[in-house]
Design a protein around this nucleic acid. Structure first.
Length: 440
RNA sequence: CGGGGCGUAGCGCAGUCUGGUAGCGCAUCUGCUUUGGGAGCAGAGGGUCGCUGGUUCAAAUCCGGCCGCCCCGACCA
């Protein structure tokens, strides 16, 4: 993409409304624009990041056996009356009437609707297990939206819903998502730690929040330091291996880890002092098992091998992609701007033409641009007629992992400079070596 | 929902206390010079001062009502 033809409205100064670093940087780098309290337009650069995140989420959901569909944002109140939540859900639910005065709502979540879809088609235990997910906009009318997309009213959510014949099956479904989440966050360059979460009236141990560590995180977390060294389950993990998955989950839940709400000081104190870690974190995922909470009132049943109808055991599993964008920035930035992990970066390489308009420099950049694209890299080519300083500042701000800097000075020797955004390391290398170096 | 704060040019701000014809920086446009860490000079354009009543000869400024946004707390992915 040629920057001169792109739409990337960066801000030199920080808008007043932004307090936390991710919000400031998202506005400055032209990722989002606020349209109302807790409601944001995703500008081209931000949308690229969101798409990258969604792609990884999809790959890992699919790998675990979950199946994607897409449900509407506007739902009928009738379904929610069936589950009893139309009355139970508070003012966070945005209630709407259509032209016929029918009660509608903008979905804050989709348990009722997915249960309706399930019960309409699934009759037999032989069709289980089943896990259906979608990535769809949600709306929760928060009393006080804040921190940009970290806590907005409209937000994107990947929500998956599992259906099983019994609790043992549901546990395995839960474990699949548990492992898929570990892999998803790891691929985004994040260290996530599953922490026991409140299971509400259901009880049991099947609810975890996935927390990533960031010094500016919203909540205080306490955990055993050894989690930092745990390996991520590999790509070839067998999701049908019940015992194997359980072993992974057991390991990842074997040590103490809790947010302040679930914190047990005495349990924490029993960890050797040098293994204790208290830090700040951001919740990026939440999974839980809730049994027959919806299948019972909504009569979602299947015929079991015993010839009896069984209410299915369900679980739901959420990740907030829009919130993840902010979380990535909170976890990775410096005073100059964003530092994207390669997997989520809007572009792979920023190509800086330090003297646009100069024949030799333009020609060298054009060649590099073509070669990098041919090699499969997403390249943002800064071909604007700007001073070098402005280009460096822009590239640092938007956080593209690699900068290829081409100016008359180095080109005179047939070389360009390669800078790694994360570390600031620079190296001079011959024009022809750039593609190979980036591939390494 | 309780407490606090802020609405003046695209962005960041001054001006409000003490009423008197709306200003600064950045950005934008034109021209020239410049080109390895947010350039210089010269010129230009851009504002119903959030909205609405009122007081006054006169309101960004004083008074009332409303709207929007932000921060802290309670609540949440």
């Amino acid at each position: 993409m040629r920057l001169s033809r792109y739409f990337m409205p960066i801000l030199r100064e920080t808008p007043r409304e932004a307090e936390i670093v991710s919000h400031r940087l998202m506005l400055r780098a032209g990722l989002i624009r606020q349209q109302a309290a807790g409601s944001f337009a995703w500008l081209p650069l931000g949308l690229r990041v969101l798409d990258k995140i969604n792609r990884i989420i999809r790959e890992e959901q699919n790998r675990s056996g979950a199946i994607e569909l897409l449900m509407p944002t506007i739902q009928s109140a009738d379904l929610w009356r069936e589950s009893g939540r139309y009355e139970a859900y508070g003012k966070e639910m945005l209630r709407i009437k259509d032209r016929h005065e029918r009660d509608m709502l903008y979905g804050p979540t989709n348990e009722e609707m997915i249960t309706d879809i399930f019960r309409a088609y699934v009759r037999s235990y032989k069709e289980l297990p089943l896990n259906l997910y979608h990535i769809q906009w949600k709306f929760r009318d928060e009393v006080r939206p804040r921190f940009g997309v970290m806590r907005s009213r409209e937000f994107l959510m990947k929500d998956a819903y599992s259906f099983d014949l019994d609790q043992a099956g549901a546990r395995h479904s839960y474990n699949k998502m548990f492992v898929a989440y570990l892999r998803t966050f790891a691929r985004l360059g994040l260290k996530s730690i599953p922490m026991r979460a409140d299971t509400g009236p259901i009880g049991g141990d099947l609810s975890h929040e996935f927390i990533i560590l960031a010094s500016t995180g919203e909540s205080e977390v306490f955990c055993h330091k050894d989690y930092l060294g745990f390996d991520t389950p590999p790509a070839d993990t067998d999701f049908d291996d019940v015992a194997g998955l359980q072993a992974i989950v057991d390991r990842w839940t074997s040590l103490y880890a809790a947010t302040s709400e679930m914190h047990d000081a005495s349990a924490f104190e029993s960890i050797p002092a040098d293994r204790r870690m208290s830090a700040r974190g951001i919740e990026v995922g939440h999974i839980f098992y809730f049994g027959t909470k919806y299948s019972a009132p909504m009569k979602a049943t299947v015929m079991g091998p015993d010839g009896q109808e069984h209410e299915v055991h369900m679980g739901s599993y959420g990740i907030g992609p829009t919130r993840l964008v902010a979380a990535l920035i909170e976890a990775s930035h410096d005073e100059n701007g964003i530092i994207w992990p390669e997997a989520a970066a809007p572009f792979d390489v920023a190509l800086l033409n330090l003297k646009a308009g100069d024949g030799a420099t333009d020609a060298a950049c054009a060649d590099l641009y073509t070669a990098l694209q041919a090699a499969g890299f997403d390249v943002l080519y800064d071909d604007r007629d700007e001073r070098p300083g402005a280009k460096f500042a822009t590239a640092d701000l938007i956080g593209i992992p690699w900068q290829v800097v081409a100016g008359p000075k180095s080109l005179a020797e047939g070389k360009v400079e390669l800078k790694r955004r994360a570390t600031g390391e620079r190296e001079l290398l011959p024009l022809g070596d750039v593609v190979a170096r980036l591939r390494a």
